[in-house]
Amino acid sequence: MTDEAAYGTVDGPREGVAPRRMTRLDRTEALRLLGTVSLGRVVFTHDALPAVRPVNHLMDGRDIIVRLHDGAALTSIVAPTDTAGVVVAYEADVIDPDTHLGWSVVVTGYAHRVTDDRDLARYAATLRPWVQRAAMNAALRIRPDLVTGLRLTAEPAAGAEVAEDFGDGS
C-alpha cells in the first residue's frame, strides 16, 4: 500500500472544495520546505507543562536556528553545553486557508544554545525580531532527529484526463 493510499482523502465532498489527498514528504523535501519559510512553532516543556511559541527561524544546513532573548520562556529550556540537549519539536507549514492545500513539517530533535560568537553574529544579522527588543543575545540550534512532513494536494476531478508524456515525441 502506498503512502497515498494509506492516507486517502481528507474531508468528504464539500461544495466548492475539491477532494484532497495527503502524502508523506521524505526527510530531504521536508527540510527543504522548512527553508522556504521563516515562521514556525517550537514545542517544549516549561514549568513541567507543554508549551508552544511562535518563532522565526532560519536553516543552517540541516539545523533549525531560533532567536532567543532574555526573559523568554524558551531560554529556560537551554541545556548546558556538555549535555545531549533538550528534546523539542518544531513545526512549520503553509496551508491555504480557503483550499486547505499545502504542507506541514514537524521536526523532533535536540536543542542546544549556540555558543560560537561568529555564528551568533551571522544569525543576528538574519533573524529579525517580531517586536523591537534589545539586540539578539542568544540563539537555539535544533538538530533534527525525527522529521515528518505531509503535503495536501487536490485530487484530479473525476473523469479528468491526465496528460501522459511518453518521451517519444507523441
Results as ranks from 00 to 15, higher is better:
Glu91Asn: 03
Pro129Val: 08
Tyr123Ser: 04
Arg62Ser: 10
Ala6Gln: 15
Met1Asn: 10
Pro19Thr: 02
Ala134Cys: 07
Arg143Leu: 08
Arg67His: 12
Ile142Pro: 00
Arg118Thr: 03
Val94Pro: 01
Glu161Thr: 15
Val52Asn: 11
Thr115Asn: 02
His112Gln: 08
Thr2Trp: 12
Thr45Tyr: 05
Tyr90Ile: 02
Val37Tyr: 10
Asp26Arg: 02
Tyr7Met: 13
Gly61Met: 06
Ile95Asp: 03
Leu101Asp: 11
Met59Trp: 10
His100Ile: 02
Arg20Met: 12
Arg143Val: 11
Asp116Ala: 01
Arg113Met: 03
Ala134His: 07
Gly167Val: 09
Ala51Trp: 05
Thr108His: 13
Trp130Gly: 13
Arg14Gly: 08
Phe44Thr: 12
Asp119Gly: 01
Ala121Asn: 04
Leu127Glu: 07
Ala163Cys: 11
Pro156His: 05
Trp103Ile: 06
Arg24Lys: 09
Val114Leu: 02
Asp96Met: 02
Glu91Asp: 11
Pro97Thr: 03
Asp26Glu: 06
Ser38Tyr: 09
Tyr123Met: 01
Thr2Ile: 09
Tyr7Asp: 09
Asp93His: 02
Met1Lys: 13
Gly102Ile: 03
Ala124Met: 05
His69Ser: 15
Val55Cys: 08
Ser76Val: 05
Gly102Cys: 10
Asp165Leu: 07
Tyr90Gln: 06
Met59Val: 10
Val78Tyr: 05
Met1Pro: 14
Thr2Asp: 14
Leu49Ala: 15
Thr81Ser: 15
Thr23Gln: 13
Glu15Met: 09
Thr28Leu: 06
Asp165Trp: 07
Glu91Phe: 00
Leu150His: 10
Leu68Gly: 05
Gly167Glu: 10
Ala92His: 00
Ala111Asn: 03
Val10Asp: 07
Asp82Val: 00
